[in-house]
């Protein structure tokens, strides 16, 4: 049933819900994160973190991708990004700059290494 907070786009689409309340209405992370960005704890956790942030923090002891944190938190990616951006802002985690995927799309060396790796599995 569509309640006050739901509008049905159509049957196939399912309910259109309001943005998650966990982020207190914020849907825009302050730090650029994509699905594959790696994050890791710094060991400097702030004291005023709420349970959602604590859970996220616990997943980042070793470098982990944003999409894996989202899957383990069972939260949508967009919501997870906001949580992680908060943790970056307060110094509890840092992004571990990865050589981003997009710049390598035509990189033969990378493709050759990838193929070599796949051939050894």
């Amino acid at each position: 049933m569509a309640g006050d907070d739901e509008v049905w786009l159509d049957d196939e689409a399912g309910p259109l819900i309001r943005p998650y309340t966990v982020n207190a209405g914020r849907t825009r992370p302050t730090v650029e994160l994509d699905l594959l960005s790696l994050v890791v704890t710094t060991g400097r956790a702030g004291s005023d973190v709420d349970p959602e942030h604590v859970k996220a923090l616990e997943l980042c002891h070793t470098p982990v991708s944003v999409v894996e944190v989202a899957a383990n938190l069972r939260l949508p990616v967009m919501v997870t990004k906001v949580l992680l951006a908060d943790l970056v802002d307060c110094g509890a985690i840092v992004t571990w700059a990865s050589s981003s995927s997009s710049s390598h799309v035509t990189d033969r060396v990378l493709l050759e290494k990838l193929l070599d790796g796949l051939q050894r599995i």
Binding site: D5, V7, L9, L16, I17, R18
Partner: peptide, 10 residues
């Protein structure tokens, strides 16, 4: 999308 405006998501 009426009340929920452009913030509606699926």
């Amino acid at each position: 999308l009426s009340r929920t405006g452009d913030k509606s998501t699926t």
